[in-house]
Design a protein around this nucleic acid. Structure first.
Lengths: 220, 220
DNA sequence: AACTGTGAACTTCTTCACAGCC
DNA sequence: GGCTGTGAAGAAGTTCACAGTT
């Protein structure tokens, strides 16, 4: 018994597919009808062979000697990533960062819909962002239940992030994107993806300095 | 001739060191004086053996049978990452996201100092954020030169990100953190690190759905 | 006894090189 | 000729298991 294709796509590949999808949309908007792996790879900032390997997870989708049809490939990747399916999300913590996310138009075209924006501060309640009123945090559970939201985004201060995370998980959210500068613990079946802005800066700075000074011993 | 230790620390390790540093600071603030790899690993969300391997890049820094001294280890990591050194940074694009970054207190304690906030919109010029006035984008080159800023952060709309990137690189910035949803091209010697919020969400959603349905074939 | 530091096994990801097809 | 799809090689990262030290 053979299995025709491993049913799981590696995480690294998924991340790049999302990037290819955006590049393809841009190309399609520009009226481009066909593209080679080399060109697409350059535009996406990756190696051409790697791009072809990524696409191989979707089954054959190009034409040898020619390249890929832009519209077809875009639709194919979109279908695999599930952009046509609407995904209700809730967002907790409506500071500058939360507002930026709630406002960002790019999510809608990828199937993400914010169905609830929550904050603890009375001053923010009722404020409208991206066509949505900010609600008090008490309503979190009710909204998650009513909307069946399975994705939660945390943009609160670190001090309350774990508590928010616990409430999201208890309410039925299965995937959490965490921007708070803390490591969250979650029950089995709930996964967290962390984006840590200060870590990104630190890595960038360190790698830059390491690249510049490959031969300097640090003074005792 | 032997080299006692490879002078480069892997990127993945650098990212985790930044996380350990934060956890250690929290422990130190709580008055904790010593900690084991197991405990620290749990708090950082990693495997204990991996943590020890990460630390091994700094040379021996624990005591066998006992653990690590919190203050010592924090200082050691801090020194390696260069948090004591002040790093001038410029930030271009002062929307919600840019404002969030300019305001974020966590950068200062890591040695990052925003020495210039720039925007193209006249409406934003002069606005004060995080103790800093927003300047017109025309002043970018002058400020980079005067402050010797080597790090630039781009939080502009995608359409202008490449142009901003070109100007930063030409002005002498060597490391760029890009939040705009485009892939940037840079000359040799300038490196870019990309944070793509919508890719993060997409990966999170996909992995969640893939985990739930490991055995579903997609209908033709 | 407890816990670190590290070689070795293992897994994952990337790159290469070329066969296969248009 | 040109470009895709993929097995094989290589690099990087992770986990294990245990020797070494206090």
């Amino acid at each position: 018994m053979i299995q025709p294709r491993p049913r799981t796509i590696p995480e690294a590949t998924v991340a790049r597919l999302a990037v290819y999808l955006r590049v393809l949309s841009t190309l399609a908007d520009g009226g481009r009808s066909t593209v080679s792996s080399g060109e697409l790879a350059t535009a996406a900032g990756v190696n051409p062979a790697g791009l072809r390997k990524d696409l191989s997870h979707l089954g054959p989708c190009g034409v040898r000697g020619v390249g890929y049809e832009v519209d077809t490939l875009r639709d194919r990747i979109g279908r695999v990533l599930g952009v046509e399916r609407s995904r209700p999300c809730v967002l907790v913590g409506i500071g500058n960062l939360g507002s930026a996310l709630a406002d960002y138009a790019g999510f809608g075209s990828r199937g993400f819909e914010f169905v609830g924006l929550f904050d603890a501060s009375p001053a923010r309640i009722g404020q409208r962002i991206g066509g949505q009123a900010v609600r008090p945090i008490d309503e979190l559970e009710a909204v998650v239940t009513a909307t069946q939201a399975s994705i939660g985004v945390i943009t609160t201060p670190g001090a309350v992030a774990q508590a928010v995370c616990d409430r999201l998980a208890a309410a039925g959210v299965r995937s959490i994107l965490n921007f708070a500068p803390v490591t969250l613990a979650t029950p089995d079946g709930v996964d967290v993806r962390k984006v840590d802005l200060s870590v990104e800066l630190q890595v960038l700075a360190f790698l830059g300095q390491q690249r510049l000074a490959p031969a300097i011993g640090e003074p005792a």
